[in-house]
Design a protein around this nucleic acid. Sequence first.
DNA 1: CTAAGCAATGTTTACGTAAACATCCACTGG
DNA 2: CCAGTGGATGTTTACGTAAACATTGCTTAG
Lengths: 357, 357
Amino acid sequence: MGTVDGESEPMGTSRTRGRAARPRQGASMADVARLAGVSSQTVSRVSNGFAGVTEDTRRQVLDAMRELGYRPNSAARALRRGEFRTLGVITFSLSTMGNIRTLEAIATSAAQHGYAVTLLPVAVPTQDEVNGAFSRLGELAVDAVIVIMEIHLLDAATVSLPPGVQVVVADSDAGDRYTVVDTDQAGGARDAVRHLLDLGHQTVWHLAGPEGSFAAQRRANAWRDTLAAAGRVPPPLVRGDWSAESGYRAGLRLADEPDCTAVFTANDQMALGLLRALHERGLRVPGDISVIGFDDIPESASFLPPLTTIHQDFAEVGRLCVEGVLSKMRQDGAEHGTTLVPTRVVVRESTGSPPGR
Amino acid sequence: MGTVDGESEPMGTSRTRGRAARPRQGASMADVARLAGVSSQTVSRVSNGFAGVTEDTRRQVLDAMRELGYRPNSAARALRRGEFRTLGVITFSLSTMGNIRTLEAIATSAAQHGYAVTLLPVAVPTQDEVNGAFSRLGELAVDAVIVIMEIHLLDAATVSLPPGVQVVVADSDAGDRYTVVDTDQAGGARDAVRHLLDLGHQTVWHLAGPEGSFAAQRRANAWRDTLAAAGRVPPPLVRGDWSAESGYRAGLRLADEPDCTAVFTANDQMALGLLRALHERGLRVPGDISVIGFDDIPESASFLPPLTTIHQDFAEVGRLCVEGVLSKMRQDGAEHGTTLVPTRVVVRESTGSPPGR
DNA sequence: CTAAGCAATGTTTACGTAAACATCCACTGG
DNA sequence: CCAGTGGATGTTTACGTAAACATTGCTTAG
């Protein structure tokens, strides 16, 4: 019984008053208790794995549970315990690979800790929408929140969190105001630039992400700093919007720069478009121009040529977000701070020595 | 005991017992009611936008709410109402673009209907894991479930759903047992093959997805059927695993087939790898071989050459899943059935006439 | 042998909300 | 002028669980 459609009308459990909106849930603790011949408190104890219940009694209760198909009612449980065992994740459209992978890791990690994950999509990344998401938060069944978002929208947000709801921010930059977990953007960008300089390039061009993005900004800053530290002159910054299409447009432009021998693109998608543009213009990679990306999306190994790129460990970011938020829940007064997840260079075939050598 | 109401300690939000585990939530209805000088029921009425409250009273209550920062307690609400206003989404790793886009659409659409979305990741797509997810479902705070999954695992699953929890399955094939929303895989595959035949190709090779996948199976079947209907002989089937890497391997193999002039790959990622392999072997696309993909991922417009492919409307799939599950919740006895979302051919530059012509 | 101690189990109560029912009061029409 | 009507608001109660406290009965030290 209790199979697929569970619809079953005829058998009414105790409550046949018919007042409930929905063809009510199955058995309650009281029902189980009655069948097992114990008190509901004992059922509760068994249900929560408490000690202090005879093996005999426990078995009886478990049998009764099975027979009635008992499932704890999570609403009642949450009400009683004052916690939902649920984490909320606020994010923009899941259009970037990074966000998705992070989300996935969050969900997995949360599940391991016995937490569910509720998605709070923010349709449009406007201030209003973000504020709205935060205020809806209050009546949402979550114990804590992980925000995957460009922080500058958070910044201005009148973030009035319900008391006791902790927040961890991923992919951002506000260690003083929130607990932040992020990829080591600067380190990755530095490694990318160094990789190209080490190959003998005089300087490195940068195809950056959109202006509003913190990740883009940090990668661009590190690019500039690394060049400066090596005594090189940074060429003008070229901007894209993360999309392959914008990479293509940038590529057409860079193809006309005679002394451009190396490009660091702020993500792999733009590198893809860039490669296409260079190919169209008859420039060879890495023969004429070297290209290094950022992210290491699975497809990048199959680009033409396979892309050298900076690998981000999104799974680790997600995992740390969950760890962080759970630990903050345990000890309320925890300090804010930033945890950086290291990157690593993945050398494939899109980078090499400059043409002249 | 007579309602103490008036007297007793003047301040202190009723619950100063300090028994709650967590620094409890903010104000409750009772607190608001006290401050506004009304009964908690009136607060409830205001909170739920009921008619039959004087404008004066309403304002007073709203003021009190604001002052105390009142947020309805969703656990209590769910307990009382018997519904969570939450949809569960069961899915494997969010590694495929399609699943993600579908999920995103589900979240957005659910939000529009006032529902939240809870993620139930299934770590490994094994029978046990799936069963586990379904049984955990019972104690999860969801009113209905959307499953994004290859159905053959569902098939054998001893799906015992909690009573009253409706299910809609996306991307699958079991209209007789569940309500299903899916892309018109067969139609898309048919269009892909026809597109190539129309260009003059004698026949079309197929790089299929993994054996276990229903989507892969249906695309492959439609490929075979369409060829048969046109009186062509289907070449041997080549199998990949959705990854670009597997497409690359298949491409190396197909490059050796002298009479292969057209390939239909079951997704865009594999097409990417295929393109790389063909390029390596000195074959030109579409000059020597035409390639058509499936999915229309954003990057496919930037492949080398830009990929002709079959566009899937994941957003629509997600939207229909939500509509479907909500409508099933309203009228319990709804019939199962399958809703197909049409695809369309996006012609770019990877397909053309066969070499001989 | 008895009281203390303790393990197993039962009883009471509160969590915050909202449905159902009860009350109050200002009008209206006869 | 009063019963009737209906809108505004208050009171009671139950939703299912689990903490706190109460009870029972058995074991064991003195």
